[in-house]
Amino acid sequence: MTSIEIDRDAAHDAAQNELTKPIYPRASPADQIVDWLRDLLYRITAAGSAIPGGWFTISVLVILFVVAVVVAVRIARRTMRTARSANQALFGSQELSAAQHRSIAEQYAAQGDWSAAIRHRVRALARHLEETGVLDAVPGRTATELARDAAAALPALSTELFSAANTFNDVTYGERPGTESAYRAIAALDEVQAQ
């Protein structure tokens, strides 16, 4: 009887070939996932027991991490909202009252500059809703956000509010020309609120 020297790679290949034969049972994919999860849970449990304070320490650290993430997200959202450029904000850089915006809108309307008249009339509407306490003043609010917030407070005017916001966006960002009829619709909405 002669002995045959088999190197490590050859032995590995031979074992793999043997185990692929149908006579050996194979774990189903579900069983493999369950085994992997058990192994992961065991490793986590072992690691948790090695930390001073055990699971209490881990729980406190996880809670602190979650709180930190929530605070960071809120700060980031607030910063993004207030860091918008003046062109995107509804009011831009001007701080005028609702009456002042209405007056400016009427001056532009008299000149036939319907785009500028629309912008100032929507601003008058927004400022009036803030002055009367219907809405909280929010720096950097867009026309769409105005419509959404105002529609929540005044659901009967939801359609008109979103139409005014879309018109504002069209003339401000879409560079579409304003029309007298669009201005008159927004003015009527503003006058209803001003009464």
Rank of each mutant, 00 (worst) to 15 (best):
L125Y: 09
T82H: 11
D35N: 10
H120T: 02
V122A: 02
G133N: 12
R84A: 11
R74E: 09
G133P: 08
M80G: 07
S49M: 07
S93N: 09
D39N: 09
A86G: 06
D39L: 06
D31F: 07
F56Q: 13
A46Q: 08
I58L: 15
E131M: 10
V67G: 07
F91I: 04
F65I: 11
R127A: 12
R77D: 14
S28N: 05
T132G: 02
S103Q: 08
V71H: 07
Q100S: 12
A110E: 08
L125I: 04
A137F: 15
W55V: 03
L135Q: 11
T82F: 12
A105Q: 02
T82Q: 11
S28M: 05
R123I: 06
D35M: 07
W55Q: 08
A27K: 15
E95W: 11
A126H: 12
D31Y: 06
Y42F: 05
V71L: 15
V122R: 05
I63S: 04
A109Y: 01
P52M: 05
F91G: 01
I63N: 01
L61K: 11
W55S: 08
L125P: 01
S103E: 03
A72K: 14
Y42I: 02
A50Y: 08
Q100I: 03
S85D: 10
V70K: 12
L90M: 12
R102Y: 10
L61N: 11
R74P: 00
R74V: 09
R84C: 03
R26C: 04
H128E: 00
R84M: 09
A117D: 00
I58H: 06
I58G: 00
I104D: 00
A116L: 07
D113K: 08
V66W: 12
Q111N: 07
R26E: 04
A124G: 05
I44Y: 01
E131C: 09
V69N: 09
N87W: 11
V134W: 12
